[in-house]
Amino acid sequence: SEYETMLTEIMSMGYERERVVAALRASYNNPHRAVEYLLTGIPG
């Protein structure tokens, strides 16, 4: 799925699956924002 592709691409940058899933959830599946959250911390 498109979601799995995003997940895999972000994980390939060296992040753990659960952190990527949390970041995508926080960003409403916006991959650019999710990466930003992984770099700066997930808000909330």
Results as ranks from 00 to 15, higher is better:
residue 39 L to W: 05
residue 38 L to T: 00
residue 36 E to N: 06
residue 9 E to T: 12
residue 35 V to G: 02
residue 22 A to D: 10
residue 39 L to R: 14
residue 23 A to S: 03
residue 40 T to H: 15
residue 10 I to W: 04
residue 14 G to V: 03
residue 36 E to M: 11
residue 43 P to R: 07
residue 26 A to S: 05
residue 17 R to S: 04
residue 15 Y to H: 06
residue 43 P to I: 11
residue 5 T to I: 14
residue 41 G to K: 08
residue 3 Y to G: 03
residue 32 H to F: 11
residue 12 S to M: 12
residue 8 T to H: 14
residue 37 Y to W: 09
residue 27 S to D: 01
residue 17 R to Y: 13
residue 7 L to T: 03
residue 34 A to D: 01
residue 30 N to T: 05
residue 24 L to Y: 01
residue 36 E to L: 12
residue 19 R to N: 10
residue 19 R to W: 09
residue 41 G to S: 11
residue 2 E to P: 10
residue 21 V to C: 04
residue 17 R to K: 10
residue 14 G to L: 03
residue 12 S to E: 10
residue 43 P to Q: 09
residue 1 S to K: 13
residue 40 T to E: 10
residue 28 Y to C: 15
residue 22 A to Y: 05
residue 21 V to R: 05
residue 17 R to L: 10
residue 27 S to L: 03
residue 15 Y to I: 03
residue 7 L to G: 00
residue 30 N to V: 06
residue 42 I to G: 10
residue 43 P to E: 09
residue 12 S to A: 15
residue 15 Y to T: 01
residue 3 Y to F: 10
residue 4 E to V: 09
residue 8 T to R: 15
residue 17 R to F: 10
residue 28 Y to P: 04
residue 11 M to R: 01
residue 40 T to R: 10
residue 18 E to M: 06
residue 9 E to R: 10
residue 8 T to V: 12
residue 31 P to F: 15
residue 32 H to V: 15
residue 23 A to L: 02
residue 2 E to Q: 11
residue 26 A to M: 09
residue 18 E to C: 07
residue 13 M to D: 02
residue 34 A to W: 03
residue 26 A to E: 08
residue 6 M to E: 02
residue 36 E to W: 13
residue 31 P to V: 11
residue 20 V to S: 02
residue 21 V to T: 06
residue 10 I to L: 14
residue 28 Y to L: 14
residue 39 L to N: 11
residue 4 E to Y: 11
residue 35 V to E: 03
residue 34 A to P: 01
residue 44 G to T: 13
residue 36 E to P: 00
residue 17 R to M: 09
residue 28 Y to K: 15
residue 35 V to S: 03
residue 23 A to Q: 01
residue 4 E to M: 11
residue 43 P to H: 09
residue 1 S to W: 13
residue 37 Y to P: 00
residue 23 A to V: 04
residue 27 S to E: 04
residue 31 P to T: 05
residue 7 L to Q: 01
residue 17 R to T: 04
residue 44 G to N: 13
residue 21 V to W: 04
residue 41 G to E: 11
residue 14 G to P: 01
residue 34 A to V: 03
residue 39 L to Q: 14
residue 31 P to M: 13
residue 30 N to Q: 08
residue 25 R to Y: 09
residue 20 V to N: 00
residue 37 Y to V: 05
residue 11 M to P: 00
residue 13 M to E: 03
residue 37 Y to I: 12
residue 12 S to D: 09
residue 23 A to I: 02
residue 35 V to A: 05
residue 2 E to W: 14
residue 33 R to F: 08
residue 6 M to S: 05
residue 8 T to N: 14
residue 38 L to G: 01
residue 32 H to Q: 15
residue 40 T to S: 13
residue 44 G to C: 07
residue 29 N to P: 04
residue 12 S to Q: 12
residue 5 T to Q: 14
residue 14 G to T: 01
residue 5 T to L: 13
residue 1 S to G: 11
residue 14 G to N: 02
residue 3 Y to K: 03
residue 12 S to T: 08
residue 5 T to D: 12
residue 4 E to I: 11
residue 34 A to C: 04
residue 13 M to F: 06
